[in-house]
Design a protein around this nucleic acid. Structure first.
Lengths: 196, 196
DNA sequence: GCGGTTCTGGACGAGATAGTCAAGAATGGG
DNA sequence: CCCATTCTTGACTATCTCGTCCAGAACCGC
């Protein structure tokens, strides 16, 4: 019926994501994305709309992936909930430490750059944070049921604290903190959680 | 001898800072700053050099002010060290919550945007974080001497944790978390600090 | 294959943007 | 009061950047 797309949409979105990730929203030129993907600008605009729509698409995909990855890490039986929680927090420190390019987390970067004046980005960020918070809350509640974290502490509050620690690890990693320091933060945060 | 400056350098730097704060480094145009300050571009370039040099100047001043403000809040006698620590952490949550424009902290914003590819910004951010960390360490050690925080915990590690929490509160505030939630994070972080 | 339809590539236009420059203004030591 | 010196203004250049547009290419139902 008509000429089909000659590119893989997901691959193009990944490449665009890497560009935005590397240089931020304002710092990324559509021509950069066109060059990196090999697509002409006509194709880009035809497929994804303008720069803002493309960024929103990239950002939404990234948030969704981050949410799903966290859910996979945190969901499971009560018996191993604390272990999963522990591994999750440590994994964040290690991922941040291993990120030699210092790209950090795209959510952190985009929120810092755009949330202030871009309602759509702000809303998506808020949803992502809420989602991460809810997953942490569930995992903490499970660990409480299993007797690995003291009862009598609101799991949602502990989740907020851990979420803040996670975002803080992210921020400090971007600021150049050493892997050892990031790891120590994760360990300290886990150590101060109330034990039964 | 020669024509004197007709503008107040500090006022111009404050205005430039507000511009960079509002729209980020890449998103700020020199013409915006010229318009906001009322200066011609020639004066700006003559007084501060190019855009990057101006930003660096603004950023360095901001970091220095933040470091000094924190030092003023945290320094003092051992007896009231815990109280100062407590007020500091809560003040961060309240400042973040009260920031209705969602500008957040310029250090967080600039680090997220620039540290990745701008060595000078990265270095200044790292210095600022180290400074804040050292101040927290000193205050925690004082609180330990006064018997308000359990001995036997490395104050530097607790400081890292609190710094991460502070940066996390910042990040979540930018993401749209409610004042109540930010406040709860601060309270929870203080509550889990090891008591003697 | 034919023709309608969608995709591709890149030239193009309009406007933005960093930084320069020159002509004139303000100052104060001599 | 004059002149060397520094500051100011904003026009100007050269480049960049977004988004459009169109001529041609590729496809597939008929």
């Amino acid at each position: 019926m008509a000429r089909p797309r000659s590119f893989d949409e997901r691959a193009v979105l990944r490449t665009a994501r890497d560009q935005f990730w590397a240089t931020g929203y304002a710092g990324t030129k559509i021509d950069d994305i066109a060059a990196a993907t090999g697509l002409g600008k006509g194709s880009l605009y035809g497929a994804f709309g303008d720069k803002h729509a493309l960024f929103l698409r990239v950002y939404d995909d990234y948030c969704t992936e981050a949410e799903e990855a966290t859910r996979r890490r945190l969901e499971g039986p009560d018996e191993t909930a604390y272990q999963r929680l522990r591994e999750h927090v440590i994994a964040i420190a290690e991922d941040t430490a291993a990120d030699t390019d210092r790209r950090g987390c795209l959510i952190a970067k985009s929120t810092a750059e755009c949330a202030q004046h871009d309602e759509a980005i702000a809303a998506r960020s808020q949803r992502a944070f809420r989602e991460l918070h809810d997953q942490l809350t569930g995992c903490i509640a499970a660990a409480q049921r299993a007797g690995d974290i003291a009862d009598g502490h609101d799991p949602a509050r502990l989740a907020s604290l851990l979420l803040a620690v996670n975002r803080g690890i992210e921020a400090l990693g971007k600021g150049g903190s050493s892997p050892a320091e990031l790891h120590a933060i994760a360990e300290t945060a886990l150590a101060v959680l109330p034990k039964p």
